[in-house]
Simulated assay, not measured.
Amino acid sequence: MNGSPITRIGTGWLLVLPFLALVVTLFLGPIVNILWLSVTDPEPGLGNYAALVTSDNLTGILWTTIRICVITTVFSVIFGYSIAYAMVHVAQGSRNRMLSLLLVSFWISVLVRTFSWLMLLGRKGLVNETLVNIGIIVEPIEFMRNELGVLIGMVHYMIPYAVLPLLASMQNIDGRVLSASRSLGATGNQTFWRVYLPLTKPGLVAASLLVFILSLGFYVTPAILGGGKVLMVAEYISVQILVTLRWGTAAMLAALMLFGVLALLFLMSRFMKLSTIFGGAKA
């Protein structure tokens, strides 16, 4: 006798349970500690959260973060939509090569990408030197130490993340629907705007939320390309922990980001299975 299914399941859980408890403890422990610090340091209460309303400095940092994340999301999704659309409408061999190049970009460190942009966009970088040499500009353009440089670096990094959910959404569109639209007299533009684009709405929403969520936690790119003049939440949290030692404020901002990300992930799951974003099963 091999025992009943319930017995076998129970035995399996007994083997897994210690490791599951360890993972849960190591994962939830720090989160609980952060939430606890946000309401106890420097004194018990909701003073840290009240500072979101009373402190102009915190309000400015939050609005800067949201503004940069929104702009990054808009441009990343626009470029990502174009790339995904091209990938869907090319031959299978070309699509595979494009997908391979897209996946290779995930292996390049954000630090390497950021320093690459630093070399390209600096006052004596390749871009400014080229523009000056061909006579388009007289003085170098200030790409660095401002929001422009931060946005260029963030959009470049986020485009592949926008492509994946859009590609998954476009591949699920039945080509017969588009053929039916054209057979009824619709032009190519009408078919795209009235049929194709609405059908990709779940992918658009998922891509926008994914890029926005990932942009919220950007630290390296704003710190290097912003040169300390573009302060976002992640960098401010680092300053509060390592420099000013205001752990309560840092914990409050971390908790705020955590709840915001969870809410956005829930919203994204209403439009697309989260597993499909990274190539999981679509069923």
Rank of each mutant, 00 (worst) to 15 (best):
F266R: 11
M87E: 11
V239T: 02
L265H: 04
S238W: 05
Y219C: 03
F27H: 03
R123C: 00
V211A: 02
M154P: 00
Y161S: 09
L121Q: 06
T11N: 14
M252K: 10
I68G: 02
S269K: 11
I152V: 07
M170D: 01
F259L: 15
V16T: 02
M87H: 08
Y219H: 10
L120G: 03
N172I: 08
F115G: 00
L197M: 13
L28S: 04
L99M: 14
M257I: 05
G135D: 09
T244C: 00
G226V: 13
G47I: 11
W117R: 08
P44E: 13
L52T: 08
Y157D: 04
E43L: 12
L52H: 07
L258W: 15
V70M: 13
T40H: 15
D56C: 01
V150F: 08
R182V: 07
L216S: 09
E147T: 08
L103W: 15
G203E: 14
H156T: 03
L214Q: 09
G185M: 03
F79Q: 02
L214W: 11
I83E: 07
R182E: 07
L58K: 12
V211L: 02
F212A: 06
A84L: 13
L62D: 01
Q92G: 00
H156C: 04
W13R: 12
N133E: 13
F271K: 09
L120M: 15
T114N: 00
M170S: 01
W13E: 04
T64R: 15
L209T: 00
V70Y: 14
T59V: 02
S82P: 01
V155I: 15
T72C: 14
A162S: 04
V53F: 10
H156R: 05
G248A: 10
L253E: 10
S94A: 15
V195E: 10
Y157R: 03
D41A: 07
L253H: 05
G260A: 04
I224M: 15
F192D: 02
V195L: 11
I66A: 11
P44Y: 12
A162P: 02
Q92D: 08
G248H: 11
I9S: 06
T276C: 09
L204C: 07
F19Q: 05
V163R: 06
P160D: 09
P44I: 04
N57L: 15
I31C: 02
G10H: 06
S215G: 13
V53A: 04
Y49P: 01
S238I: 13
G3M: 11
F278M: 15
M257D: 01
A162H: 03
I237L: 05
G248E: 08
V77R: 01
N189T: 00
S169G: 06
G203L: 12
L111K: 06
V104E: 12
P44T: 07
V195A: 05
F115Y: 15
T249P: 01
G175A: 10
A283Q: 14
M1Q: 12
T25A: 10
G226T: 10
S269T: 00
L111C: 02
P18E: 08
V24S: 10
I152G: 04
L15T: 01
V138P: 00
L258H: 14
M87Q: 09
E235K: 13
L62Y: 11
V205M: 05
